[in-house]
Design a protein around this nucleic acid. Structure first.
Length: 503
RNA sequence: GGCGACGUCGCCAAGUGGUAAGGCAGAGGCCUGCAAAGCCUCUAUCCCCGGUUCGAAUCCGGGCGUCGCCUCCA
């Protein structure tokens, strides 16, 4: 079974055959560091994090390169507004970007080159382009000549003449052609600058990706990724520069992610309808945000809303449920269920099959252009079967004899989710977060006199089981009400009271 | 105006030729002292109109609608 990917260049799904049978070289456009990234930007980085993790899981040795564009008009303008050096602004938001990525559970790139550390190589590429007639200098600026490259427009499916007929192309009489774009810009007073054969200046946008990807990965590399709004002009221009300069194919597979929308409109900084990633993560845990995004195919548009995130949180709880139940059961042998009277073999067969089915379907769907929505459905299928086994079937078994199978089921749920970077917190409680009031509760209801909140909760649990066994409903319900007021979730399962906190 | 994508259950969303995954919400049932959780059952013929085919949500043509790119943008 081969992996298939949708290649923007050909607009079809193609069999994925990397240049090296065991290795994958991929490059994903990183941020221009002039601000905090928003949740829409994060979606793209998440998409390619999943792709990278999956390819790794499938056995490829993946080299993942992501640039940081730390010199650009937007950075310069923003820094000027704040009256600080451009480099300082860039450093601030580079650090913010890295920590936000870490918080979202994005794996670190294999290498993360900075534009400002690659200036000599960029100058080298401009020189090559001038030497081969693909670029020309005008008063210290250097432009790429789009008409010198016959393939211009092949990635985005555009025709130079069609583009020119559009009225929005800015006319600059210094260019040979309105579509020609800057490779090198003369520095204005106060702007960052580097010496070059054309005077002091800085590189134009697009150039850094061409140079860094080639330097880090060599041509042609396997996967070039980014959001769909980068197809034109950014990736089209990268491609033109690189192929014109080297005469080689630039990239084997172009992958582009769909955009995040708000009210059916693209989320973007210029429209002002964005939410910063760090603000979203302050309210929703990482796995919930990731699950939310993985429920839609990466190439489709995705509507952002807190309602959607709330639903994802509920879905997350559904997945976490059986894993928690298993953890609780393991900790408390005294509360093991009595095994079902018969039919255990049927249940075992059924769950065993469900584990295998989940893995097979997960792989099949992910192989098909990283269909995370379908892959997730496979996981939910196993969640249902595990729940059924625990609560309708034999459960853990009178002597824990079904534990190994349940552990395998739990692993069958956790492993594919881990490939998607979704870590399930199966701990039934998070001790550090217990509210202090629980100590008083334990003293009141369970006579607990210690100082350990974890022991206090355990004492409450036992006290409530006793109250229930004595059919003392007023006490049992009172305890539940008080605990719920403190944020605990109290559930009476067949094996006794479950008390969890921090959902 | 040019190029491209999309339109599937109340909401979200997989599925690209063989008769519709999953999540959320809802209804009924089981379980339960009550509650919660869980399990079971139920709710779609796939924007509209034609065409191709033994057979289409899936292919082709037309229409309507939405979005993206053409300017910085993940």
């Amino acid at each position: 079974m081969a992996i298939r990917v949708y290649n923007t260049m050909t607009r079809t799904k193609e069999a994925f055959v990397p240049r090296d049978p065991e290795k994958v070289a991929m490059y994903v456009c990183g941020p221009t560091v002039y601000n905090h990234i928003h949740i829409g930007n994060a979606r793209t980085f998440l998409t390619f994090d999943i792709i990278r993790r999956y390819l790794t899981w499938r056995g490829y040795d993946v080299t993942f390169v992501q640039n940081i564009t730390d010199v650009d008009d937007k950075i310069i303008n923003r820094a000027a507004e704040q009256g600080i050096p451009a480099i300082e602004l860039a450093e601030t938001f580079t650090a913010a970007f890295r920590s936000a990525m870490a918080e979202l559970g994005i794996e670190k790139p294999s290498r993360q080159p900075m534009a400002t550390q690659t200036i000599p190589q960029m100058i080298g590429m401009v020189e090559r382009l001038i030497a081969t007639g693909h670029a020309y200098e005008v008063d210290g600026d250097v432009y790429f000549s789009v008409r010198s490259f016959p393939g211009y427009g092949k990635l985005s499916g555009r025709d130079i003449d069609d583009l020119e007929s559009g009225s929005r192309v800015e006319v600059d009489t210094r260019k040979n052609d309105p579509l020609d774009f800057a490779l090198w810009k003369t520095a204005k007073p106060g702007e960052p600058r580097w010496p070059s054969p054309w005077g002091e200046g800085r590189p134009g946008w697009h150039l850094e990706c061409s140079v860094m990807s080639e330097e880090e990965l060599g041509l042609p590399f396997d996967i070039h990724g980014g959001a769909s709004d980068l197809i034109f002009p950014h990736h089209e221009n990268e491609l033109a520069q690189s192929e014109a300069a080297t005469g080689e194919t630039f990239v084997k597979y172009w992958l582009h992610g769909g955009l995040l929308q708000v009210n059916a409109e693209k989320m973007s900084k210029s429209l002002g309808n964005f939410m910063l990633l760090k603000d979203v993560l302050a309210v929703y845990p990482t796995p919930v945000v990731r699950l939310f995004m993985m429920q839609t195919h990466y190439r489709s548009p995705l509507e952002f809303s807190t309602d959607r995130l709330d639903e994802a949180r509920t879905a997350y709880e559904r997945v976490a449920g059986p894993l928690r139940d298993l953890e609780i059961a393991k900790r408390s042998r005294a509360r093991e269920r009595v095994a079902g009277d018969d039919g255990t073999g049927v249940w075992v067969t059924r769950l065993t099959k469900a584990i295998a089915d989940c893995r097979a379907r997960f792989t099949e769907d992910m192989d098909d252009d990283f269909n995370t929505a379908g892959a997730l459905a496979a996981v939910f299928g196993l969640v249902r079967e595990m729940n059924a086994f625990i609560w309708e079937g034999p459960g853990i078994g009178a002597h824990g004899e079904n534990l190994p199978l349940l552990e395998r089921a739990a692993a069958g749920i956790k492993e594919p989710l881990a490939v998607l970077g979704i870590e399930i917190d199966a701990h039934p409680v998070r001790v550090a977060e217990y509210p202090e009031e629980v100590m008083q509760l334990a003293a009141d209801y369970a006579g607990y006199a210690g100082s350990d909140s974890s022991e206090a909760v355990d004492a409450l649990r036992k006290a409530r089981d006793v109250a229930r066994s004595e059919r003392n409903w007023s006490v049992a319900d009172g305890m539940r009400d008080r605990l719920q007021e403190l944020g605990f979730v109290v559930e009476d399962k067949p094996d006794g009271t479950h008390i969890t906190y921090g959902r």
